[in-house]
């Protein structure tokens, strides 16, 4: 297999994740879309690492991506649940009190 194949898969995952963030109307799905984006970047790390013939830096970076994703999931969900209990909604459009219009 060539590197390009992995990169294409990662690109597809990335785009799917971003599209999910852009189009789904639930904060939890926004978070899930972000997980896909993170997965795609981790996959890129590992693929480049493998095909550059180097050490394991790419795998380590992917490991840290997973750690960050775990932290993001925990905090993100806590925020979503808190938002739900205070506003009764998890639609991103309802959380715009910081916007100016």
């Amino acid at each position: 297999m060539s590197l390009v194949a992995y990169l294409v898969v990662a690109a597809l995952l990335m785009v799917a994740g971003l599209a999910m963030v852009a189009s789904r109307r639930s904060l939890i799905h926004v978070l899930i879309g972000l997980e896909l984006v993170l997965n795609a970047s981790a996959l890129n790390f590992v693929a480049f690492d493998r095909y550059s013939g180097g050490g394991q830096e790419g795998q380590l970076a992917a490991l840290f991506v997973i750690v960050v994703a775990a932290a993001e999931a925990a905090l993100g969900l806590a925020i979503v649940l808190h938002a739900y209990s205070s506003k009764g909604s998890i639609r991103p459009d309802d959380f715009r009190s910081l916007g100016d219009s």
Partner: peptide, 10 residues
Amino acid sequence: HRGRIQTYAL
């Protein structure tokens, strides 16, 4: 910058 997450994603 209007606080719409999804606009940012777009």
